[in-house]
Amino acid sequence: MSVRVRPTHCGLDAAIEVISGKWKVVILWALSDRHRRFGELRRLIGVSEKVLFQHLRELEADGIVHRETSPGLPLRVQYSLTDRGQALNQALKPLGAWGREHLPERAVPVPGDN
């Protein structure tokens, strides 16, 4: 199921392995409040299709993201967080709070980041 290529040594190592990659945490943030289609995610995050597709597949393999395909043409694909993904988002909230508290003065906050 997992895309991990090396064994993990502790819980923190396992968590970091799942969220490693520049865009994975941003994807989790974007999916935190509702289902989103691929194009909507791409526009919201500002990442290439290739990278977004790769990260979504890895998150899906780790049981963090659910991919739902609706029948018909055009093909409609929506992504959402699984219960495991929601739990991961909850675990990342203290890290986000730490980041906001220790942001350099010149950093610009992410819109909608509460």
Score class of each variant (00 low, 15 high):
residue 17 E to W: 02
residue 75 L to F: 14
residue 25 V to P: 03
residue 71 P to S: 13
residue 55 H to W: 08
residue 46 G to D: 05
residue 78 Q to A: 11
residue 43 R to G: 10
residue 46 G to H: 06
residue 24 K to Y: 02
residue 112 G to M: 06
residue 70 S to E: 13
residue 92 L to E: 01
residue 89 N to A: 12
residue 40 E to Y: 10
residue 58 E to I: 10
residue 86 Q to R: 10
residue 22 K to A: 15
residue 31 L to R: 00
residue 74 P to E: 11
residue 52 L to R: 00
residue 64 I to N: 00
residue 93 K to E: 08
residue 105 E to R: 14
residue 43 R to P: 07
residue 42 R to G: 01
residue 79 Y to V: 04
residue 98 W to K: 07
residue 56 L to Y: 02
residue 55 H to K: 09
residue 88 L to F: 05
residue 21 G to F: 00
residue 37 R to E: 14
residue 39 G to Y: 13
residue 25 V to S: 03
residue 98 W to P: 00
residue 18 V to C: 05
residue 23 W to D: 04
residue 39 G to F: 12
residue 18 V to I: 15
residue 20 S to A: 15
residue 86 Q to G: 03
residue 3 V to G: 11
residue 25 V to Y: 05
residue 58 E to M: 15
residue 43 R to E: 09
residue 31 L to H: 01
residue 22 K to N: 04
residue 43 R to Q: 14
residue 112 G to P: 09
residue 14 A to I: 02
residue 60 E to H: 10
residue 106 R to H: 05
residue 65 V to Q: 01
residue 38 F to Y: 04
residue 94 P to F: 08
residue 46 G to T: 03
residue 88 L to N: 07
residue 102 H to D: 12
residue 82 T to W: 02
residue 98 W to T: 03
residue 58 E to R: 04
residue 8 T to K: 04
residue 4 R to A: 07
residue 8 T to E: 11
residue 52 L to G: 07
residue 97 A to Q: 15
residue 47 V to G: 02
residue 108 V to D: 13
residue 105 E to Q: 15
residue 78 Q to N: 08
residue 14 A to R: 10
residue 41 L to W: 01
residue 25 V to W: 10
residue 44 L to C: 12
residue 2 S to I: 06
residue 86 Q to C: 06
residue 82 T to C: 01
residue 35 H to T: 12
residue 61 A to Y: 11
residue 48 S to L: 06
residue 57 R to D: 02
residue 47 V to Q: 12
residue 31 L to E: 14
residue 78 Q to Y: 03
residue 73 L to Y: 15
residue 45 I to D: 01
residue 38 F to R: 00
residue 60 E to N: 14
residue 55 H to G: 04
residue 66 H to C: 14
residue 68 E to S: 13
residue 11 G to S: 05
residue 88 L to D: 03
